[in-house]
Computed example of a mutant assay.
Amino acid sequence: MSQRPDHILIVDDDPEIRAMVGEYLTRQGLKASGAADGREMRRVLASERIDLVVLDLMLPGEDGLSLCRELRAPGRPALPVLVLSARSDEADRILGLELGADDYLTKPFAARELLARVNSVLRRTRMMPPILAAEAPQPHLRFGNWTLDTVGRHLVDAAGTVVSLSGAEYRLLRVLLQQPQRILSREQLLQLTQGRDADVFDRSIDLLVSRVRQRLGDGPRDARYIKTVRNEGYVFCMAVEGMPSTASRDEAPS
């Protein structure tokens, strides 16, 4: 039985972009559907199994940031989101990532680059970091005032409020919880969460740590959960309940 092709939903009010991207992705072995606005996006999501949403920020009516926030609302299934924008402002990129987007691409873009980003996001979403793959899944990990639900892939605070996480945020927090009290370098975190090496200008882990700290209500100076170790990396400094034994954690690569 052949494997079902990944189904990509392109949400963009420009019919030429929807057609161009859809045709290109289809030629590359993917399935593509289009939506011109939030209403059409919801209709497709309700009737089709979608694997990733390519979401334009500049939409009529509800903009892409509002729709991204909706897709990341508590209780919704985790769905990768690749944001498109004609604006290259750093603030827009950070805002999109903070709202839970898994990647960000500015217009105009090459179809081949979009395909590479789509495949990368899908691969990262499905990739279990090597350090986590060998352990039995633990449904709930507790630390401080928080519980990480590893089935729903979200946080729950002491009052029972659900806090959504993007795929990247979830993977980073899982890696940190798996090795509490242990300093992990930026290179290690990037390799364990995204399966790639860092270059000298890569600050994506710092941005990701900042986003997770915001979810936890943590600050960089008076951090309760994730502390920065100067010139070394980051360390999760809170005890974690629900993880495998300390002995199995000590076998992790340094």
Rank of each mutant, 00 (worst) to 15 (best):
P130W: 04
L79I: 03
Q194W: 01
S2V: 09
Q28N: 15
D102E: 08
H140L: 07
L148R: 05
R224Q: 11
I183E: 15
R69V: 07
R211Q: 15
H140S: 03
T161S: 14
L177P: 02
G75V: 01
D14Y: 10
A86K: 01
Y234K: 04
P130R: 08
S204F: 03
D250K: 15
G100L: 03
N231H: 12
S166F: 06
S185W: 07
D149R: 09
R4V: 14
S254Q: 15
L189H: 10
N119D: 13
R112L: 13
E169G: 09
R196E: 11
G144P: 08
I205F: 07
R76M: 00
D63Q: 08
D51V: 03
Q28M: 14
P77G: 00
R182N: 03
Y24D: 13
N119E: 14
P130C: 06
S85R: 07
D37V: 01
T228N: 12
P15Y: 11
L57H: 04
S254R: 15
Y225G: 00
L177I: 01
A223D: 08
G217Y: 10
L65H: 07
A134R: 14
L57S: 04
N145V: 08
V151F: 12
I131P: 05
L190N: 15
E232Y: 13
R171L: 02
P137N: 05
F236C: 02
E135Y: 06
V229A: 10
A46G: 11
G152K: 13
A136Y: 05
V44P: 02
P220K: 10
Y170K: 06
L99N: 07
G217H: 10
R186M: 07
I50R: 00
L172C: 03
